[in-house]
Design a protein around this nucleic acid. Sequence first.
DNA 1: GACAGTATAAACATTA
DNA 2: TTAATGTTTATACTGT
Length: 677
Amino acid sequence: MMQESGTETKSNGSAIQNGSSGGNHLLPCASLREGRSNGETPAADAGAAELAHVQQQQQQQALQVARQLLLQQQQQQQVSGLKSPKRNDKQPALQVPVSVAMMTPQVITPQQMQQILQQQVLSPQQLQVLLQQQQALMLQQQQLQEFYKKQQEQLQLQLLQQQHAGKQPKEQQQVATQQLAFQQQLLQMQQLQQQHLLSLQRQGLLTIQPGQPALPLQPLAQGMIPTELQQLWKEVTSAHSAEESTGSNHSSLDLTTTCVSSSAPSKTSLIMNPHASTNGQLSVHTPKRESLSHEEHPHSHPLYGHGVCKWPGCEAVCEDFQSFLKHLNSEHALDDRSTAQCRVQMQVVQQLELQLAKDKERLQAMMTHLHVKSTEPKAAPQPLNLVSSVTLSKSASEASPQSLPHTPTTPTAPITPVTQGPSVITTTSMHTVGPIRRRYSDKYNVPISSDIAQNQEFYKNAEVRPPFTYASLIRQAILESPEKQLTLNEIYNWFTRMFAYFRRNAATWKNAVRHNLSLHKCFVRVENVKGAVWTVDEVEFQKRRPQKISGNPSLIKNMQSSHAYCTPLNAALQASMAENSIPLYTTASMGNPTLGNLASAIREELNGAMEHTNSNESDSSPGRSPMQAVHPVHVKEEPLDPEEAEGPLSLVTTANHSPDFDHDRDYEDEPVNEDME
DNA sequence: GACAGTATAAACATTA
DNA sequence: TTAATGTTTATACTGT
């Protein structure tokens, strides 16, 4: 009886902290505006000539770095007694450019990947093409590097032999000639990739920003990438080995076994260098780990969802899970292509992790700043682009209200890093702020189902509090159910299934759910055959909510300013990824999508309301919606208590009917999505 | 400042 | 008896 209370008491501290953290997840919006207000010019401003100049400089830098590395290498050889004075004289000129190539693989760096993601201008197809091009280049380069490495090893062996034999070899010159040829090849590849980048830039797909000097071909930065990849790989392999050590090394995927007998390219890659081996094995280990972790949920696989293969760029339709497995084994077996794709994915993940770290740091700074300034007088109220209830001093949000992009990112983008690493908003990152209460966006008539649908994967994986009230969430859970009724336990399950946030502090939020169910008249308990179920009295629900959208231009303007409520994830991601990409925020791009959001909100509410009222065959007396008259609503019949459904749909009646709102809208149960895109 | 809405916590009752 | 479920009260916070 009191045990739950007891557990709640125990978890109070963490619950408060957790709640605080949840309220913060739109803070990146502020950072987004901050980024925009920096006055940094779009990268597209950088001309091709300037880019070429920068690349030349960077090539020179690369040469210098390579020379230094060579010197270090030679010093090491001197120490180890392997050095040949003659070779020492001859080798540098040969090794330098090759070393450059070895140290600076000219693939798209995470920074460049970030740029592309920042721009938000690439369609998935474009991205796929880009990735494939990069994969091809990477493979070519790997092969060249591999071959060169072998040549160099041969050369060293020959030199050693010749030192012992005291001979002056002709073979050395031949090998050196070969090396020179490969150097030239590598340089050509570099140039090719530079041209590729340049063409991307010219197409507007990739931008070089003045404020990011390390972007295109920064040798040192690139030199760090393999190290980081290696580190990432260590994490992966350690986790994998840990799993194996526990005896769970049986796999449901053939990929694992093919890994062991790996095909030639991957095998050589394994030998070649740690980075290659990393990637080569990762492409195998990751599915295996996933397969292991999902063995108990045979129809749940990270690469499979909604009947579609989620392998990057695949999207093949698989009827069922078995066919998906067949598809996975056949189409995504261990080969060069899959390996390269995994490598690219690694880079994406790594970049996102870097971005995560950066944003966490920024968040800390923001929180510190806001905490310091919390006593400062408030400026004129601005529509906060925050879902959270963080009591921001208005100084933090005094930037332009049109700071949020309307082009949403796909919610799947942030999932991987979020699930693999700590959430963007960690509880620890919020501790310094003190008690924070949430303010939820459903007060702004955000289409909850749209938001949830769009950010479903995000909410499922990131411990981010959904920006909706408990009442809205409960309603959504009930309305999503086939019969529009759920037991309490089913509501619980929906919460935990849909939101990672609600997988913690169960006592707290479950109590809140029960409290809301009891408190709000809109939730009606119905005795059913299988027990008590909860239904939604949509009329009561609409009564409960403030009718903010009434055609008032100021409200619409407010909606426009705060339309980021519709996609908190997108806002956060945009802020996270888009730091300086101004072109997305042009005034012209703000117009219709905003109206679309508004329309979506109205449609959403209308749809939900009318589903219920229609299904109850109730006649909403004084104020029938004009939209209802114009647009027939297709709803399912549902067995609800007729006495619960009556009264006007105030939201609908007060909403202006804009012709933009309802083009061929199919008022099904499916959430509205397209208005976000 | 009043008020409404909401979150959170807690106590208590009921029921399976 | 226990856990789940449901109700109610209290308090605090936020926005209007």
